[in-house]
Structures are given as structure tokens and as C-alpha cells.
């Protein structure tokens, strides 16, 4: 019998049985897609972005489709950390894959408070921090657009938890590597690249924006080349592992990110189109490695050749 390829990867101290993770906001609270597959087979699960208090989210329309892409302005609607811990986590912990919580705040202190709360509960393997949201103390400018603010948030979270901290970068910046190195220097254990890219769409008949929020975040295949480029740049700038995402629809897309140097990948918008995407990517990577006689996925990671 052929020996199966080893798909396991390490994200710092976090050991994943394969590099396939579901992206925040596209996999609910982790159990909604169980009618389609067993999430225990995934590398890890990242749940919907959580805040200190429940958030209602934006008025509709919250989504609009654009060529090969999805624009969303959900407004980070979520049930709040407390309800998550009480209602969702007990079932989630039955899943045999690490559960990563994604968090966001409106002030640096809110991030720190979230980290403190999460630190006390079992069953959460790591914290991913979303820094693409507005900092109310700095006139609503996103935390992730300024290296100092990004570092300040990361540091406060790192100081309040023993769990590995992953920072999810915002792409709407002049030089993403300055943010990446800033968060690395204060103790981030990994970096996720990328969050959605700001965008708009207009209905020419009504002359209204297609989103009630006017602007939204673009995701899906439309952003894949940009995401790959950003991963490529960040991989070159830091020594901590980089998790790549943006427009991954199948195992070939995943391989592109791995070749560019991502240690793991996340599946986002694709979950909406085909709820089995993540598990099909696990299967696809297994088959690919077998076919290509790759015994360990780490032989692919960063394997981009030059012309």
C-alpha cells in the first residue's frame, strides 16, 4: 500500500494535521456546515469575528456580487464573546481540529479585554486578530493601516494571553511589509494575509451604491492575484509563518499560495459556493502529493522556482 503523504504543518507551536483552515466570517461559528462534512478533518477552524459585546451588523443590502468576486459589508455582526463561549464553544470543542477565535475591537483596550476573556477558557487553540476595523480613538482609521497602531494592538493581545497570536493583515496599505515586521517584532506567532480589499459597486439605474454601507470588502477569485502577491512580499519580510488566503477555490489555488511560501491556507468565500470546498482541498492536496511523489507537504511550501 502506498504511503500517504504527510500534510501536517506547524504554525509556531500550533500543529495542524493539514494546511487547510476555514476563514473567519465564512464558516459561521464552526458547526453550520456539518451536514456536508466533518470539520474534524480540517487543519483548523477559524470562527466568525468576535467582539466584547454582540454587534447587530450593517443594514441590508450587505452583499453584492461583482465579476468573480463578492463585496460584503456585514459590519462584523456577531453574538459577542460571552455568548460564543457559553453557547457555541461547548459543541465546537467536540471537533477534533484546533478552534481559532478571530477577534476585533474598537479600541486597543477592547482587544486586550477579549484576549483576557479567551485566555481563561479551554478549547481555543489560538487567537487571530482582525486589524482591518476602525479605531474609534483615532478617528476611525483602521488599526491595520499604521505600523505603530498595529503593533500596539498586537502587543496588548500578546501580553494578555499564553495562546499563540496570529495577526490578520489589512491589504489597503502602502507597504504591507512594514505592518508585518511591526507585528512580528512584538510577538505575533503568525500572520494571515489577506483580509478583504476595499471596494464599491453602483446600480446605475437607481444611482445607489449596491451596499447600504456604500463601501465593502472584496473577496473571492477576483482578489487571488493580489493576495498571492501580498503573501509573496510578507513571506520575504518576516520569519514567522504566513497563512495565505484570498480567492482560494480549489487545491490548485491552495498550492499557488503554498509555493509562494504560505505555511497554511484559509478558505473563505469558496465555502459559500461549495460548502465542501475545504475538505475537497484536503483531498486534492493529498492526491496531488501522491501523484507528484511528494512525501511531505513542507517540500512544496516556498518551492517557487525562478525563471
Amino acid at each position: 500500500m502506498a504511503v500517504l503523504p504527510d500534510l501536517s504543518v506547524d504554525i509556531g507551536d500550533l500543529k495542524l494535521k493539514n494546511p487547510v483552515i476555514t476563514a473567519s466570517g465564512t464558516f459561521g461559528y464552526g458547526t453550520e456546515l456539518t451536514p456536508f462534512f466533518d470539520p474534524s478533518l480540517l487543519g483548523a477552524i477559524i470562527v466568525k469575528g468576535l467582539s466584547l459585546r454582540p454587534m447587530p451588523g450593517n443594514p441590508p443590502p450587505r452583499i453584492a456580487e461583482t465579476p468573480c468576486g463578492l463585496l460584503n459589508a456585514i459590519g462584523l455582526a456577531n453574538i459577542g464573546i460571552q455568548a460564543f463561549i457559553e453557547e457555541k464553544l461547548p459543541v465546537l470543542t467536540k471537533i477534533e481540529a484546533p478552534v481559532i477565535t478571530n477577534i476585533y475591537g474598537h479600541t486597543v483596550k477592547e482587544y486586550a479585554d477579549l484576549a483576557k476573556k479567551i485566555e481563561k477558557v479551554e478549547g481555543i487553540a489560538a487567537i487571530e486578530i482582525n486589524i482591518s476595523c476602525p479605531n474609534v480613538e483615532k478617528g476611525g482609521i483602521a488599526f491595520g493601516t499604521d505600523p505603530d497602531t498595529a503593533a500596539a494592538v498586537t502587543e496588548r493581545v500578546v501580553n494578555n494571553t499564553t495562546k499563540p497570536v496570529i495577526v490578520k493583515l489589512a491589504p489597503n496599505v502602502t507597504d504591507i511589509t512594514t505592518i508585518a515586521t511591526a507585528v512580528e517584532s512584538v510577538g505575533a506567532k503568525a500572520i494571515s494575509v489577506t483580509n478583504t480589499i476595499l471596494g464599491m459597486a453602483v446600480d446605475v439605474t437607481t444611482r445607489l451604491p449596491k451596499l447600504a454601507n456604500i463601501v465593502g470588502g472584496l473577496s473571492g477569485p477576483a482578489i487571488k492575484p493580489i493576495a498571492l502577491y501580498l503573501v509573496h512580499k510578507v513571506v520575504a519580510a518576516v520569519t514567522i509563518p504566513v497563512i495565505g488566503l484570498g480567492g482560494i477555490m480549489d487545491y490548485r489555488d491552495a498550492l499557488e499560495f503554498l509555493l509562494v511560501g504560505a505555511r497554511a491556507i484559509q478558505v473563505g468565500t469558496a465555502n459559500f459556493v461549495n460548502p465542501k470546498t475545504a475538505i475537497e482541498i484536503v483531498h486534492g492536496l493529498t492526491d496531488f502529493c501522491s501523484r507528484e511523489k511528494v512525501s511531505n507537504i513542507n517540500q512544496i511550501i516556498g518551492g517557487l522556482k525562478t525563471m
Partner: peptide, 10 residues
Amino acid sequence: CGLGICLGCA
């Protein structure tokens, strides 16, 4: 999504 995971259909 239609599946309760995107929170788009508010």
C-alpha cells in the same frame, strides 16, 4: 450562502 454562515441576508 443560504446556509447561515455569511450573515448577508439580514
